[in-house]
């Protein structure tokens, strides 16, 4: 919300700063937060992970720094590597499923286990420093229900990726076109306990639907901070930009559109202008 209008141009510059920051401020390292979960956490960080042994320790380290009273919940599913062991050694609450849970289902599982007033969602393959996660937590502490990543995906070409297009149109039909392509689909994002109660943990497995529902229910939805995730996990996403996954995400968006149209009426609340339909018989 604060960065209205400048986010698209900014993406590139922020990306370089994000990677440089830990080097530029080594002071932070001196005050490492304890590697255990707080018994009465204010913030719950939810991290779905699937064979992320290489990154999970760094991801948890970033998550620990968001708040002094913080718990980290790692949902390890369908992993054959050391992800769960490493997460445990980092003091995280580790929930293990032998089988893969399914795309984004880990978010629901994590949300059910969470005890905090603020729920921060990120991913096991995204190493993000605490400084880049705190804005989301702060926004929710300051009254937001959904604090979204101010990231709309690549929008420089004339014809965007189908998912990017879907996100933009969903917001448009929700009457929130200023959110551009920002959505609960992208991590990191934070939600309030109230949002969890209103939406229910199950819906979080289908982020576009949860996003639409949140707006329809009148929750406070804002884009707070840009973390250029498209750049950070470009390699992995490129592989998984498969037809199957894309199809599921597109379907979630279309279902969300259907829900919006059902709730707001067949014209999504837009008027008919001067059109006089009764003239054509």
């Amino acid at each position: 919300m604060k960065r209205k209008g400048a986010s698209a141009r900014r993406t590139g510059r922020r990306a370089t700063r994000t990677t440089r920051r830990p080097v530029a401020r080594p002071v932070r390292r001196a005050a490492l937060p304890p590697a255990v979960n707080h018994p009465q956490p204010e913030v719950s960080v939810i991290i779905p992970a699937m064979n992320e042994a290489a990154t999970i320790a760094a991801v948890i380290a970033g998550a620990r720094g968001v708040h002094p009273r913080c718990e980290v919940i790692v949902i390890v599913n369908g992993s054959a590597d050391q992800t769960a062991d490493i997460a445990r050694s980092c003091g995280a609450n580790v929930i293990v499923y032998e089988q893969p849970l399914g795309h984004d289902v880990g978010r629901s599982v994590g949300a059910e286990a969470a005890k905090g007033a603020v729920l921060l969602f990120t991913d096991g393959d995204l190493v993000i420093p605490a400084s880049q996660l705190r804005p989301f937590v702060n926004a929710v502490s300051g009254g937001a229900d959904l604090a979204l990543n101010d990231y709309s995906g690549p929008v420089r070409s004339r014809f965007p990726h189908p998912v990017v297009l879907s996100k933009h149109v969903l917001n448009l039909l929700l009457g929130r076109s200023e959110l551009k392509g920002c959505s609960l689909t992208a991590v990191p994002h934070a939600i309030s306990r109230r949002a969890l109660d209103v939406l229910g943990s199950g819906l979080l497995s289908r982020p576009p639907l949860a996003h639409a529902q949140a707006v329809l229910e009148g929750l406070v939805v804002t884009a707070v901070h840009n973390v250029p995730v498209g750049r950070m996990n470009a390699v992995r996403r490129k592989h998984s930009g498969s037809d199957l996954l894309q199809e599921a995400i597109l379907r979630d968006h279309l279902d969300a559109v259907a829900m919006v149209l059902e709730r707001k009426g067949g014209r999504a609340g837009f008027g008919d202008g001067i059109r006089r339909r009764e003239m054509v018989r």
């Binding site: 699937m50 064979n51 599913n77 369908g78 089988q99 893969p100 849970l101 399914g102 795309h103 984004d104 289902v105 497995s205 992995r236 592989h239 998984s240 498969s242 199957l244 996954l245 599921a248």
Partner: peptide, 15 residues
């Protein structure tokens, strides 16, 4: 839907 998503996840994991 759920089964479909599980398959996607399994397939993704194999990459």
């Amino acid at each position: 839907l759920l089964e479909h998503r599980r398959q996607i996840a399994a397939w993704r994991n194999a990459l």
